[in-house]
């Protein structure tokens, strides 16, 4: 199913009185639609490249509860882990953030009830966005070079990682993805909703440190990909992967190599574990690769 169709399908699952709210958008606006916010005792607000548009139908508290229950297949108990993370992934890779009253138990969220608002975000993939940097990722023997993608938030790290995974998988590499927050592959009922390649195995919803060890032992990958490292546990498991001969492709929030040298992953930079550093920026547009450095910090993309 096309992404656009699967996004509109979400509204078909709404209760009858709200099902056609999306029809206030023109076809052009539907294509530019990025997210829909629904608030209890509020209106549906559609936002995207066209700005914002609100429906004229108010959604009651009961209405919002019904919407959430229908999106959860009338089975809240089957989605508790996702719900306690604050979001669920649906068919098409779209993500629905859910707000309400958190029920706490020993410092952890046990349940979310009395839903107050939801945010439906359209999933998007940009096929081919890694084309310009593919030549930097493999050596003369066609082996993958451990790569770290660096940028501030909302610059396209995850989208780029996804496309790199897809390309390498299609080129014949066995890739394992540990998708802790279901953002890279958006697995729904066991099927990745994004194209991540034919030879890619996905471990969804698992902590990076445990997942990477598991995948190395069980799926014999040539390279392993995960998103947003930053802890000491991540450092240890990346070293384990590299010492097992498995390539590592990952990302981190940051602005410069100097900043990362003083962070928790500084050890990985000092020991030259990564052979490629890709820097991204949102200017002039999201996903712009501003420079590519080698393991010594020298620019190689000139």
């Amino acid at each position: 199913m096309e992404k656009e169709d699967s996004f509109e399908m979400i509204f078909r699952r709404f209760p009858e009185e709200y099902r056609h709210c999306i029809d206030i958008l023109t076809d052009e606006e539907k294509e530019k639609l990025e997210e829909v916010r629904v608030k209890a005792e509020g209106y549906l607000v559609f936002a995207g490249g066209f700005g914002e548009k609100a429906s004229d139908i108010k959604v009651s508290q009961r209405g919002l509860t019904l919407i959430v229950e229908k999106l959860l297949d009338h089975s809240v108990y089957a989605h508790m882990e996702e719900l306690c993370s604050g979001y669920i992934t649906v068919e098409g890779g779209h993500r629905i953030g859910i707000c309400g009253r958190a029920v706490m138990d020993n410092g952890s969220i046990k349940h979310i009830k009395e839903f107050s608002s939801i945010n439906i975000r359209k999933g998007r993939e940009v096929i081919g966005c890694s084309r310009s940097i593919q030549r930097f990722l493999l050596d003369e023997k066609d082996d993958f070079l451990n790569t770290l993608v660096i940028s501030p938030p909302k610059c396209g790290k995850t989208t780029l990682l996804r496309d790199i995974v897809r390309t390498l998988s299609e080129k014949g590499k066995r890739v394992s993805v540990v998708d802790e927050r279901s953002e890279l592959c958006a697995v729904y009922k066991g099927v990745p909703q994004y194209d991540v390649g034919r030879r890619t195995d996905v471990l969804d919803g698992c902590k990076k440190s445990k997942g990477m060890s598991l995948m190395i032992r069980s799926m014999s990958p040539e390279l392993i990909c995960t998103d947003e490292i930053g802890s000491e546990e991540d450092v240890a498991v990346i070293k384990e992967a590299v010492s097992s001969g498995v390539g590592v492709l990952t990302s981190i929030h940051g602005m410069s190599l100097e900043e990362l040298r003083t962070s928790k992953i500084g050890q990985l930079i000092e020991e030259k574990v990564f052979e490629r550093y890709l820097f991204l920026s949102a200017a002039p547009k999201i996903g712009t690769v501003t420079e590519v450095l080698d393991k010594y910090g020298r620019r190689i993309d000139a």
């Binding site: 009338h74 089975s75 108990y77 508790m80 046990k110 349940h111 009830k113």
Partner: peptide
């Protein structure tokens, strides 16, 4: 049925 967590079920 279906409305709460496992304990509520």
């Amino acid at each position: 049925l279906g409305k709460g967590d496992i304990e509520e079920q």
